[in-house]
Design a protein around this nucleic acid. Structure first.
Lengths: 229, 229
DNA sequence: TCGCCTTTAGGAACATGTTCCGAAAGTAGC
DNA sequence: GCTACTTTCGGAACATGTTCCTAAAGGCGA
């Protein structure tokens, strides 16, 4: 990795590419072939350099993906924030969800407590909106962070599960599942049986989110701790 | 893959190993070195065969992991089910969570809508308990499945995030995060700053689960649809 | 111009899961 | 015993992300 060259004289072999150029190659590649096709070697070819050369400009693939996500979120239209704190939280969480839903690899990268430490401020207004909503409703900082994390778990889980389900379906992988269950052992599941998938197509994220936020906030406030201890 | 030999005469080259033997090698390997060390080649060595031979007994690594998970869940002590439907749901979800928490690869494998189609009945009593609780509270099948899925998203998200966070910490990867934020752009986040991790150590899963279940059920019943459409 | 130093380039190599295909090792029929 | 058939074995090979290390290419001082 280049030592974040400040300016002025340059010595040594001239770079054949740059971080910015690599990122733009990556965006081009994703736009053209989809993000599943984004491999290091392909990206190197698209950039016009050798594969290992990329590693002098990006730390690793995750670094690359985080930068791409930053760029993606920056380009999102930023909706006006509702004055009502609760609505603000729901809206911000939904925006977070939607921003990631089409970019499952982004959710994959951000599957980390404190992923906020990876992103630029320009991509963090959603997080800030949630924290601000919680604060306006009387939550302490601790409670705000707890609320955010719970919402984040739900969101990231939904995205990862749905993304993987879609991929499985695309690969025609479902037939291998078994959908006949022994009613003696699992009567309710057996009653559902192969209707499971038919029943599981609805988008329950928005409703679940609302329930979650309402519930988490119902017990909040200066006197009632949000979480356990 | 062997054609699930029914019985009787055997012809052809005699097998050097079997599915059961591979599974038990895998368990031994995991017990000894941890599941991160479970690779195909290592497993083959432990079993005493060539690497590619495994593929005549297991479909792929995911197949292997699912079988291991089945075995793991089978060995869990099955707690008595509370008569109260709501408590039953919470207990079953918690059991599901705890069963997976120490086996993050299992959550990885089960990140799929309808993962229940992968497991044996003996590993599905938790799912059935949740469906039964929902039914007892007046939910339709649709609502029960919706409730299960929402709880599942939350659960799987929590597990994946925590597992990945732990791995990151183990690799000493956190320092690369940035924890100074521009207060002008994200005031609340900036106020939290590097206290984020300090605040994020609490286990909020149980409380969040309760909130979630209560909230989802509050709007349930024969007349009030649980989800959107 | 010649050599030194700095910086970048990228081939070789490794570990991962996985597929292909020819070789190996049995039974069955003659 | 010989041939055919069937089943399993496993090395070679591929794509993936990634590290190591040597070569290349420029500026700078003599």
């Amino acid at each position: 990795m280049p030592p974040t060259a400040p300016a002025g004289k340059r010595t040594g072999r001239p770079p054949r590419t740059s971080r910015a150029e690599i990122l733009s190659s990556a965006r081009r590649l994703i736009d053209r072939d989809g993000w599943e096709k984004l491999t290091i070697r392909r990206l190197a070819a698209e950039t016009g350099v050798g594969a290992t050369t990329l590693y002098h400009h990006i730390r690793d693939k995750e670094d690359l993906l985080v930068q791409l996500l930053n760029h993606h979120v920056e380009q999102l239209e930023r909706p006006p924030m509702p004055a009502d704190p609760r609505e603000r939280i729901v809206l911000a969480a939904t925006a977070m969800h939607d921003a990631l839903a089409g970019w499952p690899w982004a959710a994959e990268v951000l599957t980390t407590d404190g992923f906020v430490g990876l992103l630029d401020e320009s991509a963090l207004w959603m997080v800030d909106a949630i924290l601000s909503g919680a604060a306006d409703l009387g939550c302490t900082q601790e409670q705000g962070v707890d609320l955010f994390r719970s919402v984040w778990y739900y969101t990231v889980g939904e995205i990862l599960v749905r993304a993987r389900t879609r991929r499985r379906e695309a690969e025609g992988d479902l037939p291998q599942f078994r959908w006949e269950f022994d009613a003696a052992q699992v009567p309710h599941l057996a009653a559902v049986g192969r209707r499971w998938h038919e029943l599981a197509v609805r988008d329950t994220y928005p409703h679940g989110l609302r329930v979650f936020v309402d519930g988490l906030l119902a017990g909040a406030g200066p006197t009632a701790p949000l979480g356990g201890g």
